[in-house]
Simulated scan of single mutants.
Amino acid sequence: MQIRIDDLSGPDIAEFLEEHIRDMKAVSPPESKHALDLEGLRKPEITFWTVWDGNTLVGCGALKELDAKHMEIKSMRVAKDYKQQGIGSMLLQHMLDQAATRGYQRLSLETGSMPFFEPARSLYAKFGFVACAPFASYQEDANSVFMTKAL
């Protein structure tokens, strides 16, 4: 497995993210969907990584700078055929290491409260993320769970 910074220009990642957006729309009401599309991810404050198994795209994740000390995890996803193989853990550890190396002190995220998102919430909890209040521009939402971790 190889993790690399991605410029979001290839057809593989466009299709992968479109599937991500479709899944989010299927399980989250429109007002509670916070996943970013390609254009939303192509911002200077966002670093985007992809995970590859040879020539096969198997995962992705991004970090968005909120301020000089705080980053947010965005668009973390593992391909359905690669779930439960440690890819999410590997990618999350990579992003934690990158945030710490860059000098950030906190990493936060928003994920869904529905059963579909339970594996994600469990993964984040396993890495020490704890529930927190909404951060940045998020508002309290019964369909969202907010989590944070000091680095």
Results as ranks from 00 to 15, higher is better:
residue 1 M to D: 05
residue 1 M to A: 15
residue 5 I to L: 14
residue 5 I to A: 14
residue 6 D to Y: 07
residue 6 D to F: 07
residue 6 D to P: 05
residue 8 L to T: 10
residue 8 L to E: 04
residue 9 S to K: 12
residue 10 G to F: 00
residue 12 D to F: 07
residue 12 D to W: 03
residue 13 I to Q: 04
residue 17 L to H: 04
residue 20 H to D: 07
residue 21 I to L: 15
residue 22 R to L: 12
residue 23 D to F: 04
residue 27 V to Y: 06
residue 28 S to Q: 13
residue 30 P to Y: 05
residue 31 E to I: 09
residue 33 K to V: 13
residue 35 A to R: 01
residue 35 A to E: 12
residue 35 A to F: 05
residue 35 A to W: 02
residue 37 D to N: 15
residue 38 L to W: 05
residue 41 L to Y: 01
residue 42 R to E: 10
residue 43 K to G: 03
residue 44 P to I: 13
residue 45 E to M: 09
residue 46 I to L: 03
residue 46 I to H: 05
residue 48 F to S: 05
residue 48 F to P: 03
residue 48 F to D: 00
residue 50 T to W: 03
residue 51 V to K: 02
residue 51 V to C: 04
residue 52 W to H: 11
residue 52 W to L: 14
residue 52 W to M: 14
residue 52 W to K: 11
residue 57 L to A: 07
residue 57 L to M: 11
residue 58 V to Q: 00
residue 58 V to I: 15
residue 59 G to K: 00
residue 62 A to G: 10
residue 63 L to P: 01
residue 69 K to S: 15
residue 75 S to P: 04
residue 76 M to Y: 00
residue 78 V to N: 01
residue 79 A to F: 00
residue 80 K to G: 06
residue 80 K to Y: 05
residue 81 D to V: 01
residue 82 Y to A: 02
residue 82 Y to C: 03
residue 84 Q to G: 01
residue 87 I to S: 02
residue 87 I to A: 02
residue 92 L to S: 01
residue 96 L to G: 01
residue 99 A to H: 01
residue 99 A to T: 09
residue 101 T to L: 10
residue 102 R to P: 00
residue 105 Q to T: 11
residue 106 R to M: 13
residue 106 R to A: 08
residue 107 L to D: 02
residue 111 T to W: 07
residue 111 T to P: 08
residue 114 M to C: 07
residue 115 P to F: 06
residue 117 F to Q: 07
residue 117 F to A: 06
residue 118 E to I: 10
residue 119 P to W: 04
residue 119 P to V: 03
residue 121 R to W: 04
residue 121 R to C: 11
residue 122 S to P: 10
residue 122 S to D: 14
residue 123 L to G: 03
residue 123 L to C: 08
residue 124 Y to C: 02
residue 126 K to H: 11
residue 126 K to P: 01
residue 129 F to I: 07
residue 129 F to A: 07
residue 129 F to P: 00
residue 130 V to L: 12
residue 132 C to R: 08
residue 134 P to D: 12
residue 136 A to V: 06
residue 136 A to P: 03
residue 139 Q to C: 14
residue 139 Q to L: 15
residue 140 E to N: 13
residue 142 A to M: 08
residue 142 A to C: 10
residue 147 M to I: 07
residue 147 M to Q: 09
residue 149 K to V: 12
residue 150 A to D: 13
residue 151 L to K: 04
